[in-house]
Amino acid sequence: MAKSQSKTAADASVECKSRRDFIVVATYAMGAVGAGAFVWPLVDQMNPAADTLALASIEVDVSKIAEGQSITIKWRGKPIFIRHRTSSEIEEASVVSQDDLRDPEGDEVRAQKPEYLVVLGVCTHLGCVPLGQKVGEVRGEYGGWFCPCHGSHYDSSGRIRKGPAPLNLEVPPYSFLSDQVIRIG
């Protein structure tokens, strides 16, 4: 009698242990889910807010830019260079052999309409703003832009030709809404 009693007690303790283990694991899991649900808002609040995202795309009227002239506009906190290129600049940009380029890319890929070149005015080396937008500024050896920070030369298609920068000036996502107006972003 005593034997059978101890046996049932042992069975009960085994069953109790597995049941208890389940409860413990389930509790930890719920706790982890709860902690995650609390931590996510704390992390996500640092992502761009709704009003920041609302300003993420802008429209620009490019018809006012005279041939040979450049304008700089601010998009997502960074400068965008829009240059109305002269026919000689377009010519220069399109005849370059791909073998001479560090980051080979055809001019026709970079400019949707050859007259207008739209690039992000941020040097791909360490993020300075290159010179060459204003009349009289140094445009570098290839007639595009020149970054004064560490001496990177860009051509009239915004491609890196000389200096430490690894890549061409980035072309932002943009589209022509009409012949005059482009939307960036």
């Binding site: 996510w40 996500d44 609040q45 709704a50």
Partner: peptide, 13 residues
């Protein structure tokens, strides 16, 4: 008010 409307989960915080 921006925290309440625009910042992600700002209203909750």
């Amino acid at each position: 008010e921006r925290i309440m409307r625009d910042v992600n989960h700002g209203w909750l915080l």
